[in-house]
Amino acid sequence: MTTDTKFPLLRTVGLDGLLVTFAQTMSEPSNRAALAFRGAVEEQQIDGVLETSASLASAFIRFNPSSLSHHDIEELLRAMLDSRDWYAAPLPAGRRFWKVPTVYGTDLAPQLEDAALAAGLSTADAIDRLSQSRVRVLTIGFAPGQPYLGPLGPEFNIPRLKELTPMVPEGALVLAISQFVLFSGPTPTGWRHVGQTAFRCFRPDMEQSFALNPGDEMQFISVSREELEDIRRTCTDGSGGASCKEITA
């Protein structure tokens, strides 16, 4: 990518996709723009558009090129881009705020101390700061229902590990580059495993299969190991004892 690249940038993805990128890096305005633009494309219900999604700073549009030409969809999207300042767009409507009981550290989340050290904090201080951080679902991706959450304070801008941890369980809260990811299934990772929850992001066996939406906010409240085990015994709806309320603007 050249340095004089102008955003928003329209580029093709394979045969049947277009990517509208609002910035080279994730930031509050570029994330808002991506979410809002993707929402607006959905609302238009354009014939030939098959599906859309938003990543950290881009909106993705997949279409059927035999019924909607590259030329026509690009023209349509450019007109939409020019119609308003997407970087100043509000967050999606119907957002919710989740408080999720979380065990920080212990053998359930063995990389907390390591993460605190990398952030230059004591373990107790790291737990305080992390459990008080109210973070937003920036995007959902990689695996079903799995949120990328941020931003955390700049002290948590710590790199990914060079060596992958072979497997962390579903509900693991992992940290890197001032973001959390809450894993929706067991997976290997290069992010540090700092907390463990009983929250299930993807519940294919339930009517509401996906728990979260981009724009939702989350806070990971510190609880004891006994409390989490109690939740695991008694709570069967996949919420992991989380509370949830609507965010009113």
Partner: peptide, 9 residues
């Protein structure tokens, strides 16, 4: 299945 890309599926 299509339509679940936005949910990571």
């Amino acid at each position: 299945r299509t339509g679940y890309l936005d949910q990571g599926l």
